[in-house]
Simulated assay, not measured.
Amino acid sequence: METKLIDAHIHLDFYTTEEQKQIIESLDKHQIEGLITVSQNLKSAKSNLALSKTYCTIQPAFGYHPEQTLPSEKEIVQLTEFILTQEQDMVAIGEVGLPYYLRQETDLKLEEYINLLEHFIMLAKRTKKPIILHAVYEDAPVVCSLLEKHSIDKAHFHWFKGDDKTMQRMLTNGYFISVTPDIVYKPKIQRIAKQYPLEQLMVETDGPWPFSGPFENKRTHPKMLHESIKVIAHLKQIDRTAVYQQIYENTRSFFTL
């Protein structure tokens, strides 16, 4: 049975150097062909670029994670220049989006985050690269409107959580989503995966984010994706080999690998 997979979203630079080495050296054993390594900021982007130069299994994406303080104008300029200089080495703009969780903890000016996201959306259009999005719950429709405004069709909503109306809008627009290993034990994520077309679905770890259930107290590793595939096949009542093949092809095609 063909069981190759690509982790569509991992923060590899958040692992220690030793953990990075252990993960990368074990990928072949676990039939993981590659990792899409998303970035938190400029420093993170530089780290992921360096990893990609060392390991051919690493495919970096460059962006500014929204669940943090807004960057200064100087930081935005520096990151933008880096992206435009290194665009041949990146597979996507990301991780970018809106600060849903940060907003629950502190008052912030959402409009400024929306403006920053629009800047990255325009960068994605300029560089002709897909965009990896952090946009959950009520933020997802806002992001959909921005994508539609700029006629962006290659959008990946990682670890998506949202209502049926927004999900229908996303799938109609051809946007992709990915699910993490929490699909193994969370009914809400199972419901989303069951409804979303297999042809627009990918799998990710979002590592080193930790998971519960059967993954309690285990370091997040791309090998966990195989458990996600089992659940997706069961939910959709589709042969597991066909699920592996479709999700693998989805990821390769979306990121032009």
Rank of each mutant, 00 (worst) to 15 (best):
N41I: 04
S72M: 13
L133Q: 06
E67K: 00
T57Q: 11
Q104M: 12
Y101K: 14
P60E: 08
H65K: 09
I76C: 03
Q104A: 05
E81V: 02
V136G: 12
H119S: 09
V142D: 09
I114W: 07
Q59G: 10
E73A: 10
T106S: 12
M90W: 10
L117G: 00
Q68M: 12
Y100T: 02
M122S: 02
I76P: 02
L116K: 02
L110R: 07
T69C: 11
Q59R: 13
P71I: 15
S72C: 13
E138A: 10
Q68N: 08
Q78K: 13
A135L: 10
K74Q: 04
L146G: 03
I131W: 06
Q59A: 14
L42I: 10
A45K: 07
P130D: 01
Y101H: 15
E105A: 10
Y100N: 09
K129S: 06
I131P: 01
Y137G: 07
L146S: 12
S44K: 09
A135I: 09
K74Y: 01
Q59N: 14
S44N: 10
K129I: 06
Q40S: 11
T54W: 12
H119Q: 05
I121T: 09
V142A: 04
V96K: 00
A50E: 14
N115G: 12
L49R: 14
K53F: 13
Y100W: 03
L117E: 01
N48H: 15
L102R: 15
Y101D: 14
L70P: 07
Y55F: 15
V96F: 04
L110Q: 12
K109E: 10
L49W: 11
Q78A: 13
E118R: 05
G63A: 06
L84P: 07
C56V: 15
L51C: 05
T57R: 03
D89W: 10
V77D: 00
E105D: 14
E73K: 13
E75R: 07
K43Q: 11
E95Y: 00
N41W: 08
L98H: 00
C144L: 04
S52C: 13
E112Y: 11
S145E: 04
E118M: 12
Q68V: 03
H65N: 06
V96A: 03
S72Q: 15
K46R: 11
E111D: 08
L84C: 14
P99G: 08
T85E: 12
H134E: 12
I76T: 12
A50C: 08
F62H: 10
I132E: 01
L42F: 04
P130Y: 08
L117I: 04
F62Y: 11
A50D: 14
H134C: 02
L116G: 06
P141W: 10
I131K: 00
V142H: 03
A45H: 01
L116T: 08
M90K: 02
P99M: 05
V91K: 07
Y55Q: 14
R126E: 01
F62Q: 03
V77R: 07
E73T: 06
P71A: 11
Q78N: 15
Q40M: 14
Y137W: 14
G94E: 00
I121L: 05
K74F: 05
V142Y: 02
T69E: 15
L102S: 13
T127P: 00
L98W: 10
H119R: 00
S145L: 05
P66L: 00
L98P: 02
E75H: 09
E67G: 03
P66I: 04
I131Y: 09
